[in-house]
Design a protein around this nucleic acid. Structure first.
Length: 411
DNA sequence: CGTCCACAGGAATGACGGGCGG
DNA sequence: CCGCCCGTCATTCCTGTGGACG
């Protein structure tokens, strides 16, 4: 419904921003929660139904939600919690919600601290025993006489790093307190993670399961059309560009977040060019830019020794055009550390760092057996050499390393 | 067909910066 | 202020192992 006010608003905004592309670019940001979520009606109904007992003061079942990245899990859950809170406030039922991203929180302790925060209990960011935090949480929760719905997003990251002890504790909170209840929603994009769970935790956590299937290309198109309408000035997005964005994201396991990112970034690119229309080329450029930015910020944020290891692999590949094995890398790494006057880490630690970089796709490492010549890892750069060079070209120590010529490694 | 290389990667332990309650 | 416990990063010590060589 386009009222006079909206039209006028558009005019103002266009004037203020001077943009020929955007009306409201925030609509395309990943944390934006739209007022409607197309093609997810089924899941919304299902989850809403499971949670609604909270409105009447009884606990809904725990839910396990599974789906790949960008299938709308987080958006749907946040949307429902939002509505639930509003409704709860309206009819005066006591209820709290708490959303935690386990990967960002990182440890049992920080997740608990977050939980405490959501019921207004301040916890220092370090210093207490984890069990102490849990106890305080239970006591305060009980006093509060409420239903707390806790969302543990990326719960697989928690279990992989910390094990399922915390989940076990949380599930059992209900047994220890009288006046409040907790219900847990676990969100994962890795289905295999269920194998890592204690059977008791698993059965309790997945009292209900909801699956989010990847969006198909037409569904993505639909979503993009809806968002583009709010976000872009009329006609700013060409149909070809829209279809391309949907197609690229569909190829990437139906990732809606990726699709929206493509639109936002391509819009910014078009704007920067002074163009008033987003065409296919902008989408393609956006695709490259997103990938490049991801790698770039990751590489810059790395701890020093990881950076040195990357430079090591870079230098070996560049000078000898071979894939080094752990021994080669470690030898050269020590050499570079000496250059920088830095104490080298042990081989064990370097091996661990290489594995971390492998997981993040910066390096590719593969365990191979060279028979008589041992069992080791072949290591390659996972990103183009030029990217490494470019990204580290404003890091003084890296320049020193990159210009330092290492001694040849025998083939 | 057994040996033995060159590591992989698990487990235990330590150093460190930090906050707690008393 | 002390003694304690935390998470994080690193070291030390260790056992395990695929397959070419002899």
């Amino acid at each position: 419904m386009q009222t006079d006010k909206d039209v006028l608003d558009d005019v103002f905004n266009k004037f203020l921003s001077g943009s020929q592309i955007f009306k409201d670019r925030d609509v395309l940001r990943p944390d934006y929660i739209p007022s409607s979520l197309p093609h997810r009606e089924e899941q919304i109904q299902q989850i809403g139904g499971i949670l609604s007992p909270a409105l009447k003061g009884s606990r809904g079942s725990n839910i396990f939600i599974y789906g790949q990245t960008g299938t709308g899990k987080t958006a749907v859950v946040k949307y429902i919690l939002d509505r639930l809170l509003t409704k709860g406030k309206k009819i005066g039922s006591k209820l709290d919600v708490c959303y935690i991203n386990c990967r960002l929180a990182g440890t049992d302790y920080r997740i608990l601290a977050n939980l405490c925060g959501s019921i207004g209990l301040d916890i220092p960011f370090t210093g207490l025993a984890t069990n102490e935090v849990l106890d305080r949480f239970k006591i305060d929760l009980d006093l509060r006489k409420t239903i707390i719905i806790t969302v543990l997003d990326e719960i697989d990251a928690l279990v992989k790093n910390q094990g399922d002890a915390l989940l076990y504790d949380l599930i059992r909170v209900n047994e220890n307190i009288k006046n409040s209840k907790i219900s847990i929603i676990g969100i994962s994009n890795d289905l295999r993670f269920k194998e890592l769970l204690d059977p008791r935790v698993l059965s309790s956590l997945s009292e209900e399961e909801v699956i989010f299937k990847p969006y198909t290309a037409p569904e993505l198109t639909d979503i993009l059309v809806g968002r583009a309408k709010i976000s872009f000035i009329n006609e700013a997005l060409s149909e070809g560009a829209l279809n391309l964005a949907a197609a690229l994201a569909a190829a990437e396991h139906g990732d809606a977040r990726r699709a929206l990112d493509l639109l936002r970034v391509s819009g910014e690119l078009a704007e920067r060019e002074g163009s008033s229309k987003i065409i296919e080329k902008h989408i393609k450029d956006a695709q490259n830019k997103i990938e490049h930015d991801r790698i770039s910020s990751f590489l810059r944020a790395l701890p020093l020794h990881s950076k040195i290891i990357i430079c090591t692999v870079y230098l070996i590949e560049k000078n000898n055009s071979i894939s080094p094995i752990t021994g080669d890398v470690y030898e050269t790494y020590q050499d570079l550390c000496k250059q920088l006057n830095i104490e080298a880490l042990t081989q064990r630690r370097v091996s661990g760092l290489i594995n971390e970089l492998d997981i993040n796709g910066i390096l590719n490492s593969k365990v191979v057996s060279l028979g008589r010549y041992g069992r080791t890892k072949k290591i390659r750069l996972g990103v183009p050499i030029s990217v490494i060079r470019e990204i580290y070209s404003d890091d003084p120590w890296a320049i020193q390393l990159i210009n330092y010529s290492i001694k040849k490694i025998k083939d």
